[in-house]
Design a protein around this nucleic acid. Structure first.
Lengths: 203, 203
DNA sequence: ATATTATAACTGACCAGTCAGTCATTTATC
DNA sequence: GATAAATGACTGACTGGTCAGTTATAATAT
């Protein structure tokens, strides 16, 4: 038996939480390992017992965020719904998810900037958007087949839907007094859906 | 008169061009003043004759980008067009603009990340999105008044339109093999417009 | 002559990462 | 149940490299 209980998982989480806070507040480059140490209440040396470098810590945090994102899409059974209903359930899921993510937006945009020069980041983002499209596009296809939607290109609708979701958040970053992410993602999706109806009326 | 011809404007531009290149390639923080000096072919000391700090240089570059952006919207007379036509002309203008800006996207996303902690950046972005909405929303209002569009909230449509434009670019950053900015901004706007028609048919 | 433009060597603040050592708790032994 | 040994957790002063910004000096045009 070990003379002390293993606390390494709790410590790692504790450090990641503190680091997430500091990175969000200061950005990757301005965040000092000393700041993170202070935020945890631990010493800097201890951080290096659990993460071998600052990069390693950043990577672990991003991994954790992505894991959380993907979880929201699991257990999502859209097969029994009409296409419109499925779009709404999917939209609601994304919106619920976004509420949790909004505070991490500063990290997200630094991460996006990295995507242009970092292969690993590119791959992660590609995976993310593809998971998204793999859910969204089949809904549209089903709606067209069933005659609920008019004849449109499902991929184009998928991209437009994704753009509305991501773009609305972007506009909120531009001017948070102009945009309410939840409200305007919903109104944007509603406008898109209304244009898809085979027999125009309420959605 | 000065004993030498004044080349300071050319030098500034030359330095900004080099810096834009290096910032795009490496990011603000990873870009060294020595890299920029090497890119210009000048010495580091010379950079400091024209820009008093790295921040000053970054600010000048961002200013220049924004100036270019705004210029595209000047001389844009939409008053003689139908609302749909006006939306298309506006969309085309944005798309033409975007082609020039795509290579600077890494800078744009670093800049966005800054927006969360920097008042000046916040103000600049707010100004940008508001100029955009000040053009777009009146077009929608006019379309509703004239009976060309059905009764919708013009602000919501403006935000949806903006989201489609900005969001499509974002998706392109996520996965440039999935999205073609020009094509998908156009198809997204088409879907939005079709949903706005008072008497659904072609747009 | 002299003002301007340029240079390249230099400085010093800064900070990621290290390491020799301390501390607190558990286990082993009698 | 008291003492010692073992070990994991933790610390913080230190180092070595980096890089924004400075300065002393030179070149050049007028």
């Amino acid at each position: 038996m070990s003379p002390k209980p293993d606390v390494s998982e709790e410590r790692k989480d504790q450090i990641m939480n503190a680091a997430e806070e500091v990175f969000t507040r200061k950005g990757f480059d301005e965040a000092r390992m000393d700041d993170i140490a202070e935020e945890t209440g631990l010493s800097k040396g201890t951080l290096y017992l659990y993460f071998k470098s600052k990069d390693d810590l950043i990577t672990a945090i991003l991994d954790r965020i992505f894991q959380r994102e993907f979880k929201a899409f699991e257990n999502l059974d859209l097969s029994t719904l009409s296409a419109s209903e499925a779009v709404w359930l999917f939209t609601d899921t994304v919106i619920r998810d976004i509420q949790l993510i909004l505070r991490l937006m500063p990290i997200a945009y630094e991460f996006l900037a990295l995507a242009f020069r970092n292969k690993v980041v590119q791959t992660a983002l590609k995976l993310y958007v593809n998971r998204y499209m793999d859910i969204f596009i089949p809904i549209i296809e089903r709606g067209i087949e069933s005659g609920e939607f008019r004849q449109v290109d499902p991929k184009e609708v998928g991209i437009a839907g994704g753009a509305i979701m991501e773009g609305t958040i972007l506009l909120w970053v531009y001017d948070n007094s102009l945009v309410d992410p939840e409200k305007h993602i919903r109104s944007g999706m509603k406008l898109l859906l209304e244009g898809l109806q085979a027999n125009p009326q309420g959605v």
